[in-house]
């Protein structure tokens, strides 16, 4: 426990942990305030899926990981096309970028 001084301010782990405990207690209290009269095993705790038939397997329920952040990727399409296009996976390209960087550094530092 203790404070960490960064040169511009400080940061205390103890305060954070106390804050988290308080927040967790508050959340639990809120949860406890909810309705108690739900019965297990009846249709009251069934999954509500827009009124459709709920699929038996979880496969149909989930959003696959490659669709996560679809909008983000779509918005940055030109950037991602170029960035992913750079990772061609050809061994001599991998080596090529390395040689380009070293040649650039050597040219700058030796000639300038």
């Amino acid at each position: 426990m203790g404070k960490v001084f960064t040169g511009f301010g400080y940061w205390d782990v103890g305060a954070w942990i106390i804050f988290f405990i308080v927040a967790a207690a508050y959340v639990l209290w809120l949860r406890y305030q909810g309705r108690q009269d739900y019965k297990k095993g009846t249709e009251q705790d069934e999954i509500y899926w827009s009124g459709n038939e709920t699929p038996e397997d979880g496969e149909g329920l989930t959003v696959p990981a490659s669709s996560a952040y679809w909008g983000f990727r779509k918005a940055l399409e030109p950037f991602y096309d170029r960035l992913v296009g750079m990772h061609t996976g050809v061994a001599s390209d991998i080596l090529g970028y390395y040689v380009v960087v070293v040649a650039f550094m050597a040219a700058i530092i030796l000639l300038v």
Binding site: I94, Y97, Y98, V101, V102, M105, A106, I109
Partner: peptide, 26 residues
């Protein structure tokens, strides 16, 4: 001159080995 060349080679190679950006693909 030699020291500069050595510095460039050392920095480039070691940065490659720890995975700095344009040399990170491996």
């Amino acid at each position: 001159t030699m020291e500069k060349l050595a510095l460039v080679f050392l920095v480039g190679s070691l940065a490659m080995k720890c995975g700095a950006f344009p040399m990170h693909m491996w």
